[in-house]
Write a protein that binds this DNA or RNA. Structure first.
Length: 228
DNA sequence: AAACCGTACAACCGCGATCCA
DNA sequence: GTGGATCGCGGTTGTACGGTT
């Protein structure tokens, strides 16, 4: 049984006041981030450290870009989600000034709905079978051809050999065809000719395993560079 | 004008990973 | 090697707000 992260008795919850925000900002400006457990007491806040961390990282940090997402940001989120699944922190790491919480919210409130409207299952980026007019989202919006539309991307590392890592683009065959798992296996070199330009740095072979369900967190420190 | 509904987003919660004594 | 503390993440909830009936 874990002990609670904070004493529930004396702890504020819910929306932060301006005064609380200012206290946290002032403290971090002087002492820097980190040691979240001790920050509330030191800053004179009746909040738990976890709440302070969240407030700072998701809202108060000076480098946070607020406001609506640009089209290219949205495209990138879709691409990265196809690649990484619900790894919001990793996705947000590729969007300067955006937080994982913000990306996650934007996905759930905007993109998810949009994909569903387009007949695409947001969970696996596949077209729903029998969807009347599959306006497949383009993996790169610059792509005008449906043939280039990539609906799912899988990475397999079957034999723990970096050189043999295969990146499989599950793509729709054409705009009019029913959706088919038309798996195209490409080596890393071959991907350079696609709109989705991927270079993947592998920290170690056994970290480069993305399970099909993308649930495992064992790959959280995988370093992926996308140049889109 | 009031009630209802849907959306957006801030914040919380629980859990696994990591750190450190 | 072990266990508690802390961190970081993703899922979920709560609520404010705008639009519709």
């Amino acid at each position: 049984m874990r002990t609670p992260c904070c004493d529930k008795e004396n702890i504020n919850k819910g929306a932060w006041s301006k005064q609380e925000d200012q206290k946290l900002i002032d403290y971090i400006q002087v002492h820097g981030e980190g040691c979240w457990g001790s920050i509330p007491k030191a800053a004179g806040l009746h909040r738990c450290g976890k709440s302070c961390r969240l407030r700072w990282l998701n809202y108060l940090r000076p480098d946070i870009k607020r406001g609506i997402f640009a089209q290219d940001e949205e495209d990138l989120i879709i691409k990265l989600h196809a690649l990484l699944g619900n790894r919001w922190a990793l996705i947000a790491g590729r969007l300067p000034g955006r937080t994982d919480n913000e990306v996650k919210n934007y996905w759930n409130s905007h993109i998810r709905r949009k994909l569903i409207k387009m007949g695409i299952d947001p969970n696996n980026h596949k077209l729903h079978k029998g969807f009347p007019s599959p306006h497949v989202f383009a993996a790169g919006t610059s792509s005008s051809s449906c043939d280039k539309s990539i609906n799912k991307l899988e990475i397999n590392n079957n034999n723990n050999n970096n050189n043999n890592n295969k990146i499989s683009f599950i793509k729709s065959k054409s705009c009019d065809d029913e959706y088919i798992n038309n798996s195209v296996s490409l080596t890393k070199k071959e991907t350079s000719s696609l709109n989705l330009d991927l270079t993947i740095a592998l920290p170690s072979p056994n970290k480069f395993v993305i399970p099909n369900n993308c649930e495992s967190r064992k790959t959280r420190d995988m370093d992926i560079d996308l140049n889109c």
